[in-house]
Design a protein around this nucleic acid. Structure first.
Length: 116
DNA sequence: GGAAATATATGAT
DNA sequence: ATCATATATTTCC
């Protein structure tokens, strides 16, 4: 196995900080990791070593559309993702999050320094 | 170690 | 809004 270039721990740590009812995006995560590997974030989540400790369902695309879940871009997994978010008070109008910017969680600089 | 695959982003049309 | 291209990283073999 080749060496990991992204600090997965940080990804998971960041995700754990997201409170209920908030979401983040692959882009934001990648940015905080100082990388442009947006897609890689998804693959890391797909693997999801730390199971439900990390709320992977709170990660959506940068344009507010839902993205994927459990290795699927469409299908029952996505339905479940929408359901989970709905349970947290995040609703979807069409394929995009309603009030996207409002429910977007901003990571604090302190947190970033602490993790980095 | 190399090739294929990807839960994306961005720019052009 | 839609299509094509770019890019970095992961995972599988």
């Amino acid at each position: 196995m080749k060496k990991s270039k992204i600090d997965r721990e940080i990804v998971y740590s960041l995700l754990r900080q997201i409170p209920r009812g908030k979401v983040t995006t692959y882009k934001i995560l990648a940015n905080h990791l100082h990388t442009k590997a947006y897609r890689a974030i998804g693959q890391i989540l797909k693997k999801n070593p730390h199971a439900p400790l990390v709320p992977c369902h709170r990660v959506v695309k940068s344009d507010g559309s839902i993205g994927g879940y459990s290795g699927e871009m469409t299908g029952r997994a996505i339905t479940k993702k929408r359901y989970l978010l709905k349970a947290e008070g995040i609703f979807f109008s069409g394929n995009k999050v309603r009030d996207f910017k409002e429910v977007l969680f901003l990571f604090s600089s302190f947190l970033i320094l602490f993790l980095g």
